[in-house]
């Protein structure tokens, strides 16, 4: 894994944009846990596409097709918020800490050493986030 990471190309920083005050920000989750709805086509090895997860998703409707076996799934089984903190965001929105929770969230399968392979899907998701008036994308890797 160390060898693979040494082969990764550095990602140049994008222009910095300071968002609105958090209490006015709409937040979306971007997960790399390979989460998706049961009815979705699962992720395959080397997947560079993504799945949509609706903001009103029930955790019981989600499954995981991430290919790697070396990270702990038992904590997610116990509490899905540990990967996908939807309830936490809802609570923070209700308390006025953030402005709201996006109607859509986005899920990728991580373990993808080729960043460029994700460019197309990444740009597409960026456009969807902008169209959905999302101010903050919370990227939660596993």
């Amino acid at each position: 894994m160390r060898l693979r990471s040494s082969e990764m190309q550095p990602v140049a920083p994008a222009p910095w944009i300071t968002p609105k005050p958090l209490k006015d920000c709409i937040v979306a989750i971007i997960s790399t846990a390979g989460l998706h709805r049961r009815t979705d086509v699962p992720f395959k090895v080397g997947a560079v596409d993504y799945r949509l997860i609706p903001g009103d998703a029930d955790f019981g409707d989600l499954v995981v097709s991430h290919i790697r076996t070396n990270f702990d799934r038992s904590a997610y089984q116990q509490d899905p918020n540990i990967w996908f903190p939807l309830d936490r965001l809802r609570e923070m929105a209700a308390d006025g800490e953030i402005g709201g929770v996006s109607s859509w969230h986005y899920s990728f399968m991580g373990a993808q050493p080729n960043h460029h392979a994700l460019s197309k899907a990444g740009e597409e998701v960026g456009q969807l986030l902008a169209a959905g008036e999302v101010d903050v994308a919370l990227i939660v890797p596993v």
């Binding site: 990270f71 702990d72 038992s74 904590a75 997610y76 509490d79 540990i82 990967w83 903190p85 596993v142």
Partner: peptide, 8 residues
């Protein structure tokens, strides 16, 4: 690994 928000 597998607990990005710390504690279930």
């Amino acid at each position: 690994l597998g607990r990005p928000l710390g504690t279930a």
